[in-house]
């Protein structure tokens, strides 16, 4: 009988520490599958962020570096500039990438650094206990926006993929989702394209992935999927936003 499913070599055997219903695990798997399908595990280097995915390197079986909060794109820049042959990606949350690290991501993207960013948007600071993030939806309650995000006070949630698409240099920018099989299939395609463009030595690529955080949203995993589909997909439309000519 032919094998239809097997373990991905780029993923380790470790159990993840993620909460039930969190999509970090799914996204790890997609990245690992793409690395294996492109056969680049031997020259892949991941950069772990500060956030729930700080221990991501435990779940992958290739080289990884750990960055200070928000600085992953600067670390990736350093690596890729001195070793252009490596396949480099950052894996970052919304607090990490869009708040403290906004400067680094924008300038890396604008310089056209030839690495890939996997941007996990779960609308909150997961690791520190669910505080407001730049991507928290309007009126969404978090531990530092207890009566809901007041956009008159702190502005509208940032659409990172669109924002970075406004730059001329980046090669490929897409947004997909990780909550159901039909979305996950598309997310994987986008991640694969992003890495392929990197292999072709094209400029910066980023895939934003709409994700869940049931623990900090105070929802069951099923409620979280429903809320993501209804609220997040409405504000954060899925699809390719920028592709190379």
């Amino acid at each position: 009988m032919a094998k239809t499913f097997k373990k991905t070599a780029a993923l380790s055997d470790q159990h993840t520490h993620y909460c039930p219903g969190c999509t970090h695990g799914v996204i790890h798997r997609l990245v690992a599958e793409v690395i294996d399908e492109l056969d680049v595990r031997g020259r892949a280097v991941g950069i772990a962020p500060v956030g729930c995915a700080v221990l991501a390197y435990n779940y992958f079986t290739f080289d990884f570096q750990e960055a200070a909060h928000g600085r992953a794109p600067a670390v990736a820049t350093g690596i890729k500039r001195v070793r252009p042959d490596l396949i480099v990606f950052t894996y970052q949350g919304d607090g990490d990438l869009a708040s403290i690290g906004m400067g680094e991501i924008i300038h890396s993207a604008n310089r056209g650094e030839k690495f890939t960013s996997i941007f996990v948007n779960n609308t909150v600071y997961g690791m520190t206990g669910g505080q407001m993030a730049p991507t928290t939806l309007s009126d969404q309650r978090t531990t530092t926006s207890p009566s809901g995000r007041d956009v008159a006070d702190v502005g509208m949630p940032i659409k990172v993929a669109e924002l970075i698409s406004a730059l001329e240099t980046p090669a490929y920018i897409a947004r997909q989702s990780a909550i159901k099989p039909k979305y996950i299939v598309r997310a994987k395609k986008a991640i694969k394209k992003a890495f392929q463009y990197q292999l072709e030595n094209r400029c910066f690529s980023l895939v934003e992935i709409v994700s869940t955080c049931p623990t900090n949203w105070g929802m069951t995993p099923i409620e979280a999927v429903k809320w993501t589909e209804e609220s997040m997909h409405a504000y954060y439309p899925l699809g390719e936003i920028k592709t190379p000519e």
Partner: peptide, 25 residues
């Protein structure tokens, strides 16, 4: 983080300013 969480509730009650900046810098 509990200081920020606490003051995000308390500062508005006393008419004060609470802002979560984008980084410590």
């Amino acid at each position: 983080s509990e200081v920020a969480e606490y003051l995000s509730r308390r500062m508005p009650e006393v008419g004060g300013v609470f802002l979560q900046g984008e980084s410590e810098v």
